[in-house]
């Protein structure tokens, strides 16, 4: 394998002691800690989103017809485009990790930039969708039907409450991801990362993939099966 051949010639992984904190005995130990810490954080993220999935399941099981009818109001095409965009950003993120492991400086910068671009594009599509929903008055429960709808109660509002809560929280995570990857980009332009030290790229990558994972479930649940 080319990758392994390159690796064996370069410096040993986690050999760079520049960023080792004093309380770790080795940079290797620090890497293990960072990775475990990120995985623990991802566990909290899974459970954080779990509340919304539970709410989705409860409302859907109690009022299946409302969900089927309301989901038809979402634009499946835009949802599918966003899915592809996010999957692509996951690919570039995974590639960025590869570049950092192999010391491919320009590749790393390119992959991180592409990831950020994809994330921004995702938000752009999301913004179009939100604007459309706003215009149509397809809003959450208390605002469903727009301000002029008055006091009439429509269960479709429950679906859109779930929709906005789930996609909104997910969008907040995308924004946080853009910030984190932007930080990686800044550091990679400074030349901080090398095969001997790439921990931040690896752990931010994990976070970004989790954001993708959540969307992998949101897309069919909201847009397709409704």
């Amino acid at each position: 394998m080319i990758a392994e051949a390159q690796l064996s010639q370069g410096p040993a992984p986690h050999a760079d002691e520049t960023f080792r904190a004093h309380h770790f005995e080795t940079a290797e130990q620090q890497f293990a800690a960072a990775k475990l810490g990120m995985w623990l954080f991802l566990v909290t993220e899974v459970l954080f989103f779990s509340g919304l999935f539970v709410a989705y399941a409860v409302f859907r099981v109690l009022h299946p017809e409302v969900f089927v009818n309301s989901a038809a109001l979402l634009d499946t095409k835009l949802g599918a485009i966003n899915t592809v965009i996010l999957l692509f950003s996951s690919l570039t993120m995974a590639w960025a990790v590869r570049c950092s492991q192999l010391g491919q400086q320009r590749g790393l910068v390119l992959c991180l930039s592409l990831t950020i671009a994809a994330a921004v594009a995702f938000l752009g599509v999301k913004g179009i969708e939100y604007a459309h929903k706003w215009h149509e008055g397809h809003l959450w429960a208390s605002q469903y039907g727009g301000p002029q709808a008055g006091e009439t109660f429509d269960r479709a509002g429950s679906f859109f409450s779930v929709y906005f809560a789930m996609t909104g929280l997910h969008a907040v995570h995308i924004i946080a991801g853009i910030a984190a990857i932007g930080w990686l980009l800044k550091r990679s332009l400074r030349g901080d990362f090398s095969p001997a030290y790439y921990t931040p790229v690896d752990v931010v990558g994990l976070y970004w993939h989790l954001v993708d994972l959540v969307w992998i479930f949101l897309f069919p649940l909201l847009y397709l099966v409704g």
């Binding site: 394998m1 050999a15 999957l87 996951s90 590639w95």
Partner: peptide, 25 residues
């Protein structure tokens, strides 16, 4: 212990997984 060997994903693997994800979508 000797520093561990990290797994480096090959381009073929990355592209392959991405293609599979697109197909499943």
């Amino acid at each position: 212990r000797r520093a561990h060997e990290p797994h480096v994903s090959s381009p073929a693997q990355l592209i392959g997984i991405f293609a599979a994800l697109l197909a499943l979508t």
